[in-house]
Design a protein around this nucleic acid. Structure first.
Length: 419
DNA sequence: TCTGGGGTCCTAGGACCC
DNA sequence: TCTGGGGTCCTAGGACCC
C-alpha cells in the first residue's frame, strides 16, 4: 500500500519575545518599533539573569546571539536598546496566535511558545492551494496581532521546520523532498535540526561540513561514531521523518522541574532549605494540576564557580505531597552539599503516574488524606487570589519568594503547563 | 556588570537477579 | 578454584531543543 503524502506547515514567530514586546509598545502609544533598531529582550543583571533572550534583526547584524551576556552584547553594540522580559504578555500572544490557527485545523502541535506544527493532510477540499492558505494565515496574524511569522511547508515536520528557518522575516517557504538537494543539502550541517555544538566538531572530524555531506555519508560508519544519534541526523539530512503532528492533549508529560539562579550566593543550609521549599511549592502545584504523582525526586545545584551536580532518589510509593517531596529534596541536598556557595538550585520530578488511585482513597491513611486536603486547599486559594496570597510562615521576613520558578516575577494566578 | 529556565531523550556504569 | 552472560533497574551526566 502506498503511503499517503502529508501536508505539514511549521509556523515560527519571527524573533518572538522581541516582536511581541515591540507590538505591545506600539499599541501602548510608543513611537519607536523595536524591530527596526538594534534591540534585545534581556534579563535583569542585578539579580544575575543578565542574558540575551531575543534580538531584533538589526541587533543580529552586530553578531549578537541569544544566550550571551548583556555585557558582551553591549560591547558589540553600545547603542543597543534592552527591554526587560514580560512573560505574561508572551503567553497571551502565544495563546492568541493558537486561537487563530485553530480556526484552520484541529491538528495543531504547539512545539514551543512561538512554534507550531499544523497538519493539513486531506484538506484540499477546504484549502485547494496551500500557498494561498499560508498567505492568508500569515497576513491575518500580521493584521490582527501585529507580528510576523515564517511558514515552512512540506510533507513532514522536519522539512517544514527546516523550511521555516530559511530567509526571515515574514516569509513562506516550501521544502518538499524533490527540493532537498537544491535547497537543503548546500546548507552548513549545523543548520540541521538536532546538530548542536557537541555534534558539529565530531561531524567536521569526519569531513562532514554540509547537510549534503551528512546525507551521503556511510550510515554504518556514522552510527559507529555517533550511535543512535548518528542514525537520527542521517535520516534528517535525507529528509526522512515520519513523526505525527500530535495535538497537545495527546502528549503525556514526562517530568516537571523548576530551577532558579539566586540573586546572591547561598552559603547557609537553612536558607538553602527555604529555597528548595519554594521550588517544591511550584513543582508540586504543577504536578497536582496535571493530576499526576511522581516517583523520582531530583535536586540539582550549581556553585558560584559554575560547577554543578545532581542527586536523585526513587520513592517506594508515588506522591504529590508538597511536604513529602520537600523532605526528600532536603535529604538529597544534605547528602551531597559540602558547603560551597551556591548560585543556582533546581528541583525535578519524574517517574510520573496518574494520581487516580490516590484520589479514590485506596490507601486509607488519614495522614496522607489530611496532607492532600491541605495541598488542595492551598492550590485553590492560590489559583484564585495569586501565588502570594498564602505562604508558609518560614518565608516571612526571609527575603525569599514563597514560590519560585515557572513564570516567576509577577504575582498573578498560576499558569498551568504551557503546552 | 559576566554566563536563564523549561523540557525530552540517550548512554554508561554499577547493583542485582537468574 | 578462577572468573559466564543476559536481563532489568537505578543513578549521574550529557546531548539536544525552544
Amino acid at each position: 500500500m502506498k503511503e499517503k503524502s502529508r501536508l505539514i506547515f511549521h509556523l515560527d514567530v519571527n524573533s518572538a519575545y522581541l516582536s511581541w514586546e515591540a507590538a505591545y509598545r506600539l499599541q501602548q502609544g510608543e513611537k519607536i518599533d523595536l524591530r527596526e533598531i538594534p534591540s534585545i529582550v534581556g534579563g535583569d543583571e542585578a539579580s544575575r539573569h543578565g542574558i540575551v533572550l531575543a534580538k531584533s534583526i538589526p541587533a543580529k547584524k552586530f553578531n549578537i546571539i541569544t544566550g550571551e551576556t548583556l555585557y558582551s552584547a553591549r560591547q558589540k553594540c553600545p547603542e543597543l536598546i534592552i527591554a526587560p522580559p514580560r512573560y505574561w504578555l508572551y503567553i497571551q500572544c502565544s495563546n492568541a496566535l493558537t486561537e487563530i490557527l485553530q480556526e484552520y485545523t484541529p491538528t495543531i502541535q504547539r512545539f514551543s511558545v512561538d512554534e507550531s506544527f499544523l497538519d493539513f493532510t486531506n484538506m484540499d477540499h477546504l484549502y485547494p492551494d496551500y500557498i494561498i492558505l499560508a498567505e492568508e494565515l500569515k497576513e491575518r496574524i500580521k493584521k490582527e496581532l501585529g507580528f510576523t511569522v515564517n511558514i515552512g511547508i512540506s510533507s513532514n515536520k522536519l522539512l517544514a521546520k527546516v523550511a521555516s528557518d530559511f530567509k526571515k522575516p515574514d516569509r513562506i517557504h516550501t521544502l518538499f523532498p524533490c527540493e532537498l538537494k537544491k535547497k537543503m543539502w548546500p546548507l552548513p550541517v549545523e543548520d540541521l535540526f538536532m546538530v548542536g555544538r557537541a555534534t558539529l566538531p565530531k561531524l567536521n572530524k569526519l569531513n562532514i561540513f554540509t547537510i549534503g555531506d551528512l546525507a551521503t555519508y556511510n550510515l554504518d560508519l556514522l552510527k559507529h561514531s555517533l550511535k543512535s544519534h548518528g542514525n537520527l541526523i542521517w535520516n534528517y539530512a535525507n529528509g526522512i521523518d515520519s513523526s505525527e503532528v500530535r495535538p497537545g492533549k495527546h502528549i503525556e508529560m514526562k517530568g516537571v522541574g523548576n530551577s532558579t539562579t539566586l540573586p546572591f550566593d547561598v552559603c547557609d543550609k537553612k536558607e538553602a532549605h527555604l529555597i528548595i521549599l519554594s521550588l517544591v511549592e511550584m513543582v508540586a502545584t504543577r504536578l497536582r494540576n496535571s493530576e499526576n504523582c511522581c516517583s523520582v525526586i531530583s535536586i540539582s545545584v550549581k556553585s558560584c564557580d559554575f560547577i554543578g551536580y545532581s542527586h536523585q532518589r526513587k520513592l517506594y510509593s508515588p506522591t504529590d505531597s508538597t511536604d513529602k517531596i520537600t523532605n526528600v529534596a532536603w535529604e538529597l541536598f544534605d547528602e551531597k552539599w559540602k558547603g560551597e556557595p551556591l548560585r543556582h538550585m533546581g528541583i525535578h520530578i519524574t517517574g510520573l503516574c496518574s494520581n487516580e488511585f490516590y484520589q479514590c482513597g485506596l490507601f486509607d491513611d488519614t495522614n496522607i488524606e489530611k496532607a492532600q486536603a491541605i495541598d488542595k486547599t492551598i492550590d485553590e486559594i492560590r489559583s484564585r487570589y495569586g501565588s502570594n496570597s498564602i505562604l508558609r510562615s518560614s518565608f516571612l521576613h526571609s527575603g525569599i519568594k514563597s514560590m519560585s520558578g515557572g513564570i516567576g516575577e509577577e504575582d498573578y494566578p498560576i499558569m498551568t503547563s504551557l503546552l
